[in-house]
């Protein structure tokens, strides 16, 4: 059992959870995730680790409420017990001295991106952070990003903060900033990963995306998380979740993510990402 130490909504529909998980906190590195089960015989869902405290033995998760399990989790109060928190799973994001790295984050991905930015800075990279949301009120952790990154840019769909539009604006931002980007790292919903990769393909910038297919065990046992990268099939939980965004078969991934849509009797608000898709067309 893992105690929920703290839970709060930081922006509409996005929650910050702090959990007791000493074994995970001891080993976790940027880019890894946990699998969590909110109740006995409940579904197992993967969630990225957005921060940790090795001394206190806690981990932080940024949770977007999109369906049954995430909703249950979001409704828990501090002090509640969570039966399963297993990890850290997946490979850590590759962190090295690359030069200038553009880190792009949206929805829960702003959270999981943060430790990556921190790691990159520790290695002496120049980091340009680009955060994307529908509207200005959906940003969180801006201060943390501003303190640690060399520059931070914002993009909002409604233009309420920073550049209006979506990640399609990225080339302009790069050009305007005068930065020469050596690598791009994207965390967030699948559409952000895909569109970000489309944009950087043209400029030939190596782009690493953290994929989020459906998962069950997270240890390579079930194969539900398989994705096509280049010409081969990979299991995102053990071979990833980070892959070269220019090699991912996006169409297949988007289709596979919708596998259980019908069953998941998705409440209206789940269609945040779907909305995003429509808007970004």
């Amino acid at each position: 059992m893992h105690k929920l130490v703290e839970s709060k909504m930081i922006v509409p529909n996005i929650f910050l959870l702090t959990l007791e998980a000493p074994a995970v906190a001891r080993e976790v590195k940027p880019g890894q995730f946990v699998i969590l089960r909110v109740e006995e015989d409940g579904e197992r869902i993967p969630l990225s680790v957005a921060d940790w405290d090795r001394v206190k033995g806690t981990i932080t998760i940024v949770l977007m409420n999109v369906g049954y399990t995430t909703d249950k989790l979001a409704s828990l109060k501090a002090g509640a017990s969570i039966p399963t928190v297993v990890g850290p799973l997946g490979n850590p994001t590759e962190i090295d001295k690359f030069g200038t790295v553009l880190c792009l984050g949206g929805c829960y991905g702003m959270g999981s991106l943060f430790p990556i930015v921190r790691g990159l800075k520790e290695k002496g990279n120049r980091v340009v952070a680009v955060l994307e949301a529908r509207s200005s009120y959906l940003f969180y952790w801006e201060k943390k990003f501003e303190e640690i990154s060399d520059r931070v840019f914002y993009i909002t769909r409604d233009g309420s903060r920073g550049y209006p539009g979506h990640v399609g604006r990225l080339p302009e931002i790069i050009k305007f900033s005068g930065e020469s980007v050596d690598r791009m790292i994207i965390n967030g919903c699948t559409f952000l990963l895909k569109r970000g990769s489309d944009v950087s393909r043209e400029s030939g910038i190596k782009t690493i995306v953290s994929l989020n297919p459906i998962m069950i065990d997270g240890t390579g046992m079930c194969g539900v998380c398989r994705v096509t990268v280049g010409s081969s099939t990979k299991f995102a939980c053990v071979d990833g979740p980070d892959f070269d965004g220019h090699q991912v078969d996006w169409k297949e991934l988007l289709q596979r993510r919708k596998m259980y849509l019908e069953e998941e009797i998705v409440p209206l608000r789940t269609s945040r990402c779907e909305e995003h898709k429509k808007e970004s067309r």
Partner: peptide, 10 residues
């Protein structure tokens, strides 16, 4: 001890 992936958790 369940939910413990040897090779990952430790």
């Amino acid at each position: 001890i369940t939910d413990y992936v040897v090779g990952k958790t430790r």
